[in-house]
Design a protein around this nucleic acid. Structure first.
Lengths: 218, 218
DNA sequence: GTTTTCGCTTACGGATTCCTTACGGATCAC
DNA sequence: GTGATCCGTAAGGAATCCGTAAGCGAAAAC
């Protein structure tokens, strides 16, 4: 899942980003409203984590623009203010959720995941398919009842394949959804990651290769 | 995804085209406004990369014509000018995005991708006809209930024939839609691909030859 | 502080696909 | 009928795609 964090306090922004990455999310960061709009124009995000008080362009503006674009990106508003009025006006702008600072990190992760779920067809919190069971919140995977230990990237790739619900996912889509924008587009990490993933999942094979197109879990 | 690059500096145009092809996009090139309009009349593109200063017909004209045609083609304007006024007027003409020269190639790719996503028509339903069932998302084909494994080209050709809904599709049309313009127009790949396709689909025959015209699935 | 894991790159062999060439049979116009 | 064109098929080499091994620096785990 692809997330954009917009927050002008750099240390906080980077901390959030790093934390989310540990949960196998692909995270980009912007430190002001301008940069945020630019990133949103170039990439497609499932969730936008948005501070309200931003330089150059106010968070409310960014939010309005995202909502109007009907891109399917969900907005999670952060704000220092504790007042209910803020919450109300934030939601009025079309934000999908609201989290007052300070917040517990686990809370943030849970909400991001919940929003990410909504951005697709309302899928259950646990993904299950072809003998694979994946719990995004606990970051756990089982194959035929046995727990399998996956790295961040392996987990992210498997999650995307499961979310596709049998549809073919191209390598490029995997790159876009499981890696952030700094990745070299000519890389073959996808191939390598798929190999280790398949090895860890063990026989019989679950991930199918569609030659010249991509991969899928039937 | 299908892209048309319109740029009068040939070296730049060819460089862009080649780079995009490396990213698995089907790319055509036009070197002036006239040629651009001609290509646009003949083929359907997801994204049009358009230089503003063009011989014969100005880029603004081309842009306006594309927008008015409501073809669903997204326009990415290139321009040497750095002035904001240009950006404004470009977007006023209906361009969907704007990139000032010089630009980083990765940036171009990213934006083309973003536009292509927007152009994509809603996820295609399953195509069914004459005992053939084709699911574009899962990349699966069934003949009378039996799964058939097809290569990329075979799949593309079959998809075009099914989309025609019984109408005759000429070899030229197949070449244009399932291949990009690189292909030698005198080739007989279509014939060859049709042969392997028919063989894989097995008897009784489903793809009919209309002598001197093309092919169809009645 | 040492060991292990992770994420990634490079390299290469094997599998698959794609396309060209070549040729014989089918179809059409006259 | 017969010549011209169109179509189907075989075969093989080139190009592409994919899986895997090996190795390396950085981060994490111990």
């Amino acid at each position: 899942m692809r997330v954009l964090v917009v927050e002008d306090e750099r240390i906080l922004a980077d901390t959030i980003a790093e934390g989310l990455r540990r949960h196998s999310l692909a995270v980009d960061v912007a430190y002001d409203g301008d940069a945020a709009l630019e990133r949103l124009g170039v990439n497609e995000y499932d969730v936008l984590i948005l501070d309200r008080d931003l330089p150059t362009i106010h968070g409310d503006e960014v939010c309005r623009s995202v909502v109007e674009s009907r891109s399917g990106t969900r907005v999670l508003m952060l704000t220092a203010a504790v007042q209910v009025s803020d919450r109300v006006s934030g939601l009025a702008l079309g934000a999908d959720d609201y989290l007052p600072k300070p917040f517990a990190f686990a809370e943030l992760v849970a909400r991001v995941r919940a929003l990410g779920r909504r951005s697709r067809t309302a899928s259950p919190p646990i993904l299950e398919r072809a003998g694979i069971r994946l719990d995004p919140n606990r970051r756990e995977v089982q194959r035929d009842g046995h727990f399998v230990r996956l790295s961040r990237k392996e987990f992210a790739v498997l999650e995307e394949l499961l979310r596709a619900e049998g549809a073919v996912v191209t390598s490029e889509q995997l790159l876009e959804r499981a890696w952030d924008e700094h990745i070299d587009p000519f890389t073959n990490v996808v191939r390598v990651t798929l190999m280790t993933l398949r090895r860890k999942l063990g026989p019989p094979p679950v991930i199918e290769t569609v030659h010249g197109v991509g991969y899928r879990i039937p």
